[in-house]
């Protein structure tokens, strides 16, 4: 097993443990965060804040360096927003609000999330499989406009 795979396994594992400990696998907490007219639950803001802090330090450390296992860091973020970002994020947000699950927690809770968790995962993977042609159509619409 090479080092890249070992650290991918460790990163995924720590991500999953963090999602479980933070309560973000609980759809009631996620929907509680989105429900500003109900009993609003601010937990997600603590999770997001806690996650952004070490990652901001990591981006700072990455400056002018190379990844430990070689290769290069991801390209600087693209400043262009574009229709795909807006349309895609809106569709994602609708699904996130409906069920209270996003891709990370969906995988993390798969082993204890029951039948509903499996159904969500199957539908999400089907959506990911169906997305490239839809994205191409959005791009074509943008080019024609």
């Amino acid at each position: 097993m090479n080092m890249r795979n070992i650290f991918a396994l460790l990163s995924g594992g720590l991500f999953g443990a963090g999602l479980t400990v933070s309560g973000m696998v609980d759809t009631a907490k996620v929907q509680g965060w989105l429900d500003v007219f109900g009993t609003w639950d601010p937990t997600l803001a603590f999770v997001m804040g806690g996650a952004i802090l070490p990652m901001a330090i990591a981006w700072y450390i990455a400056r002018g360096r190379q990844p430990a296992l070689g290769g290069s860091f991801p390209a600087p973020s693209d400043p262009r927003l574009g229709r795909n970002l807006i349309v895609g994020s809106t569709l994602f947000g609708m699904g996130w609000g409906l069920a209270g699950l996003c891709p990370g927690p969906a995988v993390a809770s798969l082993s204890y999330g029951g039948v509903g968790g499996l159904v969500f995962m199957a539908a999400m993977l089907a959506g990911m499989w169906a997305a490239p042609p839809l994205r191409a159509r959005l791009d074509a619409m943008g080019a024609a406009a």
Binding site: V87, L98, M121, A123
Partner: peptide
């Protein structure tokens, strides 16, 4: 919800 999350 799953389809919307996957596609979006």
């Amino acid at each position: 919800a799953g389809l919307l999350v996957g596609i979006g």
